[in-house]
Simulated assay, not measured.
Amino acid sequence: MKIVLAPDSYKGTLSAAQVCAVMARAVREELPEAETDAVPMADGGEGTLDAIVNAANGERIGIAAAGPFGRPFAAEIGIFRRGGERWAVVEAAGLFGLPLLRLEERNPLHTTSRGLGDAIRAALDLGIRHLVVGLGGSSTNDGGMGMLAALGAKFADGRGAELTGFGRDLAEMAVADLAGLDPRLAECTLLVASDVANPLLGPEGATRVYGPQKGADPATVERLERAMANYAELLAQASGKRHADAPGAGAAGGLGAALLTVGARIERGAEVVGLLCGLEERVRRADVVWTGEGSSDGQTLYGKLPLHVAGVAREAGKPAYLISGSLGDRWIELLPHFAGCLSTVTRPAALEDCLRDAEANLYATSRNLARMLASVRGR
């Protein structure tokens, strides 16, 4: 028996690679003759750089980039080869992701996406012209203004004072000038991996849907929504392109719109990572597929990574099993997509206990699933 292990990370506890290692250990315990093929996955957010670099036998390059508050820090980009070309992968979550901020620091008025512009420029300086940009898990709501500023765009308020690209700058912006954008961008393939398809504005837009989890109170949400509409209009005038309503424009606090403005293509993050990891071919060679995430519920149905893995397995005629940290609201609707859905939490427990015991709980649940597969195989 060959089992493909293709989980997402269990946010806040285990990376996708760690999840694979725990699952594989459990399989060895209960199915010692089975072969496992670990394919740590991501959907454009946390872990995307690691998933792609590891799958492609690439390398990590250290760079200096602006962090969420604009201060330089030590960051990384990934370099790998595909089709004879050098590619880079940059990840918003690793530059200004929510986990980089303490809870009391979260406020999208004071965070910036400049670090992504720094990372893209670092890749360009290395001669690379093909980039994968992972969006997801960001702490920002600046519409990608910071990224564009780091790449040479100029923004100013009504008095002509330069704006460097924080969320608070959107409302002050009166001038957008894209003439100074790095000309090397015109030579680039920019493939954006995103797990959301929200537009930039409106009730389903970047600010109203994701602003609160980034620390915006109701008044700040309304302030940022008005400011984002002003920014979107000025950006459209400067570029001659309107992307506010495009699917994915609202990803990562509006970074999607800014990337579309410089010629990027937005794709579903799980599909991009799956393609670069060779997921389809590896599933075709397997007998069973395991996937998982930190919490599965009705939101998983809207294109989250486990659903993509289940679709790949279904196309290949292979059963897929879901092991998640918890099964939440509407999880029963996931059953048509999986051969089985299991939760690693088997009894009422405090959140801190679940986080502390995440590895042990995953190991026990994985052993349980492996025993069931052994029993079925033995009949």
Rank of each mutant, 00 (worst) to 15 (best):
L131Y: 07
R114M: 14
G152W: 09
L181I: 06
G136N: 03
W290C: 11
A227S: 05
G136K: 01
A92G: 15
A156R: 13
D142S: 01
F69S: 12
S295L: 13
A219I: 11
T48R: 00
D287P: 02
G152C: 08
M1N: 00
A244K: 00
T291A: 06
L151Y: 02
G250Q: 00
A179P: 08
R377D: 13
I52W: 00
S9V: 05
A236C: 07
E59R: 15
K214E: 01
E187T: 10
G205A: 13
A206I: 14
L342H: 14
I266N: 00
S296Q: 07
A150Y: 11
A153V: 02
A227F: 04
G328Q: 07
D125P: 05
R242P: 03
T140V: 14
H243I: 13
L355A: 14
L334H: 09
P306W: 04
V262W: 04
V53N: 05
R314F: 11
A206Q: 12
E46T: 06
P32Q: 03
L95A: 06
G250V: 00
A123L: 01
P7V: 05
A119I: 12
S375L: 15
A286R: 03
D245I: 12
A251V: 03
A17Y: 04
A26V: 02
D287V: 06
A364W: 05
L181N: 02
C341T: 13
G328M: 04
G248M: 09
R314M: 12
R377A: 15
A153E: 03
V309T: 02
D245H: 11
R121M: 10
R371A: 15
G263H: 05
D297F: 09
V175Y: 13
